[in-house]
């Protein structure tokens, strides 16, 4: 198993490097450079050119890339031209917010998906299954941003059960119980909004896995041993069906990224997604680069985590 994990880690590095090169080249392809927004347009062109030369902006792309990437390794993601501050600093708090939002979303996603998928798969082609499958179709068809708006309107404005914006109530002291509770309170509605929509693919996936596993020969063997139906499900079908769900985890993270971009915007939740949209609109490219890079890295890490989970739970991979 360790060999597998180490090998898997080694594959991850080139993935990250390719990702960073792509992002870098895309940034290069965009009009303007670091100086464009910083300098007064009235300054002499020759002086700008000189400045460019000095800053290394005229170097060939691979040298600039090496500069940029070594900067990243030292925690330097560049300067935000809009906020006039280090991108690292700007991103840090938002990353923490998005991280917790993601965790909450994932928890909700699985809390919803696992029981629904199991019921739907076990009692397939019954009324119960049809209604669960019906929900998943609605989930597939509903755009997240509209659903999130509706949730915000009902639970935020009409019923006023949840706060309608921000990540924490103003004036609460960091470190206190109140602060934590307020943080959680702010997370719930956006997390639930994403989860209710995003979970449908997992429900469907788990359902089809169970329907599939039900017909496998070893399930018949288990019944022939005299195992009760509940034992057959708990000991034999579930574990085999949940395995692919673990592999699905990486994809789940990728979907989360798109989810948070919409939802943070709608709930004015100060996270990476919101930052991303703002930066794009403001053409704050160094921030956009940094955010895309972090999103990409998260997706790659998600896939890595899936594979590691799989290698831990599946003996067929574990032994190799």
């Amino acid at each position: 198993m360790w060999k597998f994990i180490v090998r898997r880690l080694i594959i991850t590095f080139p993935q990250l490097i390719v990702l960073s090169i792509i992002i870098f080249l895309m940034a290069q392809a965009m009009p303007g450079d670091a100086l464009t927004g910083l300098v007064d347009p009235n300054i002499d062109r020759a002086a700008i050119e000189e400045q460019r030369e000095k800053l290394g902006l005229n170097d060939p792309w691979h040298i600039k890339y090496v500069d940029w990437i070594s900067g990243i390794f030292q925690g330097d993601l560049g300067q935000s031209f809009r906020y006039k501050m280090e991108v690292t600093e700007l991103v840090e708090q938002r990353m923490i917010n998005t991280f917790w939002l993601s965790v909450a979303t994932l928890i909700f996603t699985y809390i919803i998906a696992v029981p629904l998928g199991i019921i739907s798969g076990r009692y397939n082609d019954t009324l119960l299954d049809s209604s669960i499958t019906g929900y998943t179709y609605i989930g597939f068809a509903t755009p997240l941003f509209i659903f999130a708006l509706v949730m915000l309107w009902i639970f935020g404005y009409q019923l006023q059960w949840f706060p309608t914006g921000g990540s924490v109530a103003p004036g609460t002291e960091p470190g206190t119980i109140d602060y934590v509770m307020s943080k959680i309170n702010h997370l719930l509605l956006p997390a639930l909004s994403i989860a209710l929509i995003q979970t449908v693919s997992t429900v469907q996936y788990l359902r089809s896995e169970i329907v599939d596993t039900k017909q496998r020969d070893f399930v018949i063997t288990a019944r022939a041993k005299g195992a009760s139906e509940s034992r057959v499900y708990n000991r034999h079908i579930l574990r085999n069906s949940l395995l692919p769900i673990a592999a699905f985890f990486g994809y789940e993270i990728t979907m989360l990224i798109t989810g948070t971009i919409f939802v943070e915007q709608i709930f004015s939740f100060p996270g990476m997604g919101q930052l991303f949209i703002e930066s794009v609109l403001q053409r704050d490219f160094s921030v956009v680069n940094a955010v895309v890079l972090l999103f990409g890295a998260a997706a790659i890490l998600g896939a890595l985590i899936s594979d590691i989970i799989l290698s831990v739970v599946d003996p067929r991979i574990r032994i190799k």
């Binding site: 020969d217 018949i220 063997t221 019944r223 022939a224 041993k225 000991r235 574990r239 085999n240």
Partner: peptide
């Protein structure tokens, strides 16, 4: 279920699929 696996039992055709791969 009290009978199956105890008083009567069965041997299956395909040994490659009749065992639970995770057990």
């Amino acid at each position: 279920n009290g009978l199956r696996g105890d008083d009567m039992s069965m041997i299956f055709q395909d040994p490659l699929t009749a065992l639970n791969p995770l057990m």
